[in-house]
Structures are given as structure tokens and as C-alpha cells.
């Protein structure tokens, strides 16, 4: 596997270096590389220099090894394993250690504030890095499960854009929903 260097330019004109194998964790970058459109530096107008290193860190960990993120997503279960003829327990144990190690790494990696979370989600969405998108979306979902609409507005920094009349209607809808579910 070649380790050609690729250069990425952030929205604020800073250049970062990444191995080609790592860059392939991103569908978008992979298409640019495979399409032969590589012309020196790849500009990423939607990703700032705060976020790009974080993205590169993820790609380095997962680049050229798309399987590992998939295993995490499946809760560490690798269904293909059963049909491998040279399946043995030692290999299974090593795999388990690897998955545990990766989970721990992801936990530490994901330790940042909310602003970074949403910026990273946007970058993952833009660069089509499925594993990173799953991680960030799952974290965002875990932060809003079971919350009230008011808490959500606060969480996402949203002001309700309904008119006062609509707002009143919304409160009615909200109450109706509460009744609907409470009935169960």
C-alpha cells in the first residue's frame, strides 16, 4: 500500500497533511483520489482548521481499515468470522482486544464540547466518513433522548420560529402528544 501524502486546505486557508491510505476513510476524498482529479492541495471550504485535525486524527485511526468501524457499529460482532475456515480462538481473543481498544480510543476521541460535536458532524457529513458520522450522530441523539422541547431548543441553540398564535397551537399539540403516550 503506498503512503503518498495528500494535502488538505481548511476553510481558513491552513494546509494539513494526511496519508493517502488514511484519506480513503472519507468517501469524498477517496473519489477525488480515484478520479485522478488530485491536483496538489484539496480545498475543503466547509471544514475549518479547528476541526480538520480532529477529522484527520479519526481517518488515521480508521484509514485503509473500514472493517474496524463496522465492527464497532455492530457491537463488536463480526458475522463474517463464522465462515472463515482458519477461525481460531486466539485470533478471536486478539480481535476482541482490538475492538475493546478501539472503543476506548473512540471514547477518549469523542470527549469534547457540543460546538465541536456539531462541527465534526458537519465535516463527517460533507466528507462522507460514515463511521465518524455514526459516532457523532449517536452522541447527539444520546444527548436529547427523553428531553423536553425546551431543553432541545437550549441544546441546539434554537429559538422557536413559530408566531405567537402558532406557538399556542404548538403547546396544544405538545399536550395532546403527552396524553397520547400517557394512555399506554
Amino acid at each position: 500500500m503506498s503512503s503518498t501524502k495528500i494535502f488538505l486546505k481548511s476553510s481558513d486557508d491552513k494546509t494539513f497533511e494526511i496519508d493517502e491510505t488514511a484519506a480513503r476513510a472519507s468517501e469524498t476524498l477517496k473519489n477525488i483520489i480515484d478520479g485522478g482529479c488530485l491536483d496538489g492541495v484539496i480545498p475543503l471550504p466547509n471544514v475549518s482548521s479547528n476541526i480538520l485535525p480532529k477529522v484527520i486524527e479519526y481517518c488515521k485511526k480508521h484509514g485503509g481499515d473500514n472493517g474496524s468501524s463496522k465492527k464497532i457499529a455492530n457491537g463488536g460482532v463480526d458475522k463474517d468470522k463464522e465462515i472463515l475456515p482458519d477461525y481460531d480462538e486466539e485470533e478471536d481473543k486478539r480481535e476482541k482486544v482490538r475492538v475493546d481498544e478501539l472503543k476506548k480510543w473512540e471514547e477518549e476521541y469523542m470527549d469534547f464540547d457540543q460546538q465541536v460535536l456539531y462541527d465534526l458532524m458537519l465535516a463527517a457529513n460533507y466528507l462522507h466518513i460514515k463511521g465518524l458520522l455514526d459516532l457523532t450522530v449517536e452522541k447527539a441523539a444520546s444527548m436529547i433522548r427523553g428531553r423536553t422541547p425546551d431543553q432541545i431548543r437550549e441544546n441546539f441553540n434554537i429559538n422557536s420560529d413559530f408566531t405567537p398564535e402558532e406557538e399556542e397551537e404548538m403547546i396544544l399539540i405538545e399536550d395532546e402528544w403527552d396524553d397520547e403516550w400517557a394512555f399506554d
Binding site: 431548543r153 422557536s160 402528544w177
Partner: peptide, 13 residues
């Protein structure tokens, strides 16, 4: 259940 309640957050939601 969450999603239905969140519909009142904003018009985008």
C-alpha cells in the same frame, strides 16, 4: 415518542 414531542421545537424540526 421523542421525535413527536420534538416537532414543536421549531419549524425545521
Amino acid at each position: 415518542r421523542d421525535a413527536c414531542r420534538f416537532s414543536v421545537v421549531s419549524s425545521v424540526f
